[in-house]
Design a protein around this nucleic acid. Structure first.
Length: 195
DNA sequence: TTCAGGATGTACT
DNA sequence: GTACATCCTGAAC
């Protein structure tokens, strides 16, 4: 399966957000790989988006990563407890990114992910735990062992990257983003995509 | 199955 | 001091 190259990320943020759906997030882990299918994303576009940390090109130590070249991982702490994973998009200097909101574990990856999330093996998961394994941005980071130490990581490398399995496009749902009620007019931008 | 409330720490004002 | 791109728990239905 081909790995996505920098050209993929160096494009319009909303195109990237939609095309990431159905592709596979790959994380090197314990000598092997954790592989998850991407099912929900959101776009954030700093030049015009009050929901983006780098709105109006605001540079701070935290947002510096958003100005890096496309194909960089932007990872930050939210609500004091959870990490969120983003893919930086568009040319260097444009603070834009795609937030990964939800993924699905492949069968072979379920055991280590269940251990990361609940400290048990996959066979011990309740149906409730299985349903809530990776269906949120904080959950998928916890499940895949991703945290702020990986902020700025190159997504073209071996630690963390995306595989294109060549699956045909399926219908994509479009709607408002979640958890950004403070963002005034940007609250209504239809920049959330899911399968 | 849904809902309210609390946890928790960093960034920024 | 305030706000935050969230998640979990427990209680009510």
């Amino acid at each position: 399966m081909p790995k996505l190259e920098r050209d993929f990320y160096n494009r319009d943020t909303l195109d990237v957000a939609q095309e990431l759906l159905g592709k596979y997030l790959v994380r090197r882990w314990d000598g092997g790989w954790l592989v998850c299918r991407i099912t929900e994303t959101e776009g954030y576009i700093g030049r015009m988006d009050k929901a983006c940390h780098a709105y109006n090109y605001k540079r701070t130590p935290r947002t510096e990563t958003l100005f890096a070249c496309a194909g960089t991982a932007y990872i930050y702490l939210i609500y004091g407890r959870y990490d969120c994973l983003n893919m930086v998009t568009e040319p260097e200097g444009e603070p834009c990114a795609v937030l990964l909101r939800a993924v699905e574990a492949t069968e072979a990856s379920k055991d280590p992910i269940a251990r990361n999330r609940y400290g048990i093996c996959a066979a011990e998961l309740s149906t409730y735990q299985e349903k809530n394994l990776l269906n949120g941005p904080g959950k998928l980071c916890r499940g895949l062992g991703i945290n702020r130490k990986q902020n700025g990581l190159d997504l073209i490398g071996d630690e963390l990257f995306i595989w294109d399995a060549g699956e045909p496009p399926t219908p994509i749902h479009v709607g408002k983003r979640i958890g950004i009620d403070y963002a005034e007019e940007a609250v209504h931008f239809p920049w959330r995509f899911w399968l």
